[in-house]
Nucleic acid binder design. Structure first.
Lengths: 204, 204
DNA sequence: TTGAAAATATGATGATCATCATATAAATGA
DNA sequence: TCATTTATATGATGATCATCATATTTTCAA
C-alpha cells in the first residue's frame, strides 16, 4: 500500500491508523448486528457509534453489504475463540459440559451481543447477501466439526450426526429463550435443553 | 359497528367484502413475512400483491405494526391446524413420528412460506413490536403444550421438559438447514435431527 | 516547518418508506 | 333510480437510507 515500502509485508503487525479505525467500525457493527440483525443499524448510526461521521464509511468498505460480510466474519472469530478454549483446553467431558452450560446460560440469554451469533442470525441467513451467507455457513461448519471432534473423543457413536443435532438444539433453545417475553419461561427453555443435552450425551 | 343492526352478531359468519379484503391482505402479508421476515415487505408492495393500491391500507389496519401482529397470529393459526391434525388424529407414536418427518422434511425446507414460522422468526422475535412478540410466544406455548401432551401419552418422563427440548431442536435444525447455501449440507442437518429425535424419544 | 498524501467531514442525491388527506368509485338501502 | 355510505385510489409529506462528490482536517516525511 505504501509507496515507501513497496515489498515490505508487515511482519510486526504494524497496525496503521486506518486499520485500527476499520477494526473499530467492524467491532461496533458486529455488536450492533448481534442485537438488531444485519439490517438493524444504518451506515450513519454505525459511524456515529464509532465516533466518526457517515461520509468516511466508503473509505473503509466498498458497500454496506461488504460490511455485513466482514461483520459476520468478525462475530464468528470471537465465538470460535471461546469454542476452542472450552473444547480443547480441558478433558473432553468437562469441555462439553462447560460449553453447554455457557452457551445456554441466563447471562448469555440476556446479552445477545456476547455469545454465539447463530441464534440471532440463523433465521435470517437465507436473506443475507450471498457473501455474508457464505461466511455464516463457514462458521456453522467450524462449530459442527469442533463438536464432532469432542464427541468422537467421548467415544460417542456417529459423532458427526450427533454434532449436527446438538448444534441445532443449542441454537434453537437460545433463539426461543431470547424470544420469550416472560423471562421465567425463557429460563425454563434453557434449563430443559441444558438438562436433556447432557442426558443424551451421557454427561448427566 | 353498523347503525342498522346494533346487537346482531354475525351468526352465519357473514363475511363482508371488507372482511374478505382484510383477510386477503393478511394472507399475503403472512406469506411474504415468512419468506422475508417482518420487515421484508413494504406496505405498498404488500397492497400491490393483494391487488390493491397502497392508500387503502389504513382502512384495514391502524398501523404497520398492527399488521405484523395480525400476520404473526395468522401464521400460527395455519401451523396450529397442521399440528393438531398430526398429533391428535392418530396413535401418539405415529403422530409424533409424522410430525418430526413433516417438520424437518426437505419439502418444507425449500418452502419457508409453508411449514412452521418459528425457524424463520425466532431469531428476530425480540426485535418485534411488543404485541407481535406476545402472539409469537403464545404460538410457542401452544406448540410446547401440544408436544408435552403427546409425550405424556407416550409415557415419557418429564414430558414438559422434553417438549421444550424437542421444540428447540426442531426449530434450530430447520433454521440452520434453511441457512445453508449448500443444499446437501442442509439436508444432512435435517436428516441428523430426524434420526436423533426419534432415537431419544424411543421411536426409532 | 512545510507540503503532499491520507483520513475524515460536510453536504447533496435519489430511492424507499410509513402515514395521511383527499378524491373517486363501488356498493347498498330507500 | 337516487342518495348515502363504504371501500379503494391518487397524490403528497416528511423521514430515513445508501451512496457519492467534494471540502477540510490530520498525518507524516522531507
Amino acid at each position: 500500500m505504501s509507496k515507501m515500502s513497496p515489498d515490505k509485508a508487515p511482519i510486526h503487525k504494524a497496525t496503521t491508523h486506518k486499520e485500527r479505525t476499520h477494526a473499530r467500525i467492524l467491532d461496533e457493527a458486529a455488536a450492533a448486528m448481534r442485537l438488531d440483525g444485519p439490517d438493524g443499524i444504518s451506515v450513519a448510526a454505525l459511524m456515529k457509534r464509532a465516533g466518526l461521521t457517515h461520509g468516511g464509511f466508503y473509505a473503509h468498505f466498498p458497500s454496506r453489504d461488504a460490511l455485513v460480510t466482514e461483520a459476520i466474519d468478525r462475530m464468528f472469530q470471537d465465538s470460535r475463540r471461546i469454542l476452542d478454549d472450552r473444547l480443547t483446553q480441558r478433558e473432553a467431558a468437562d469441555g462439553v459440559v462447560g460449553l453447554i452450560d455457557w452457551y445456554l446460560s441466563e447471562a448469555i440469554r440476556s446479552a445477545p451481543d456476547q455469545g454465539c451469533p447463530l441464534p440471532s442470525l440463523s433465521g435470517g441467513a437465507a436473506r443475507m447477501p450471498e457473501a455474508a451467507r457464505g461466511r455464516f455457513n463457514q462458521g456453522v461448519a467450524y462449530f459442527q466439526r469442533a463438536l464432532a471432534t469432542a464427541f468422537d473423543a467421548l467415544g460417542l457413536p456417529e459423532p458427526e450426526t450427533t454434532a449436527r443435532s446438538v448444534l441445532a438444539e443449542l441454537v434453537g433453545a437460545m433463539a426461543l429463550a431470547r424470544a420469550a417475553s416472560d423471562e421465567a419461561a425463557g429460563n425454563e427453555i434453557l434449563r430443559s435443553s441444558r438438562q436433556l443435552l447432557k442426558t443424551r450425551l451421557g454427561l448427566a
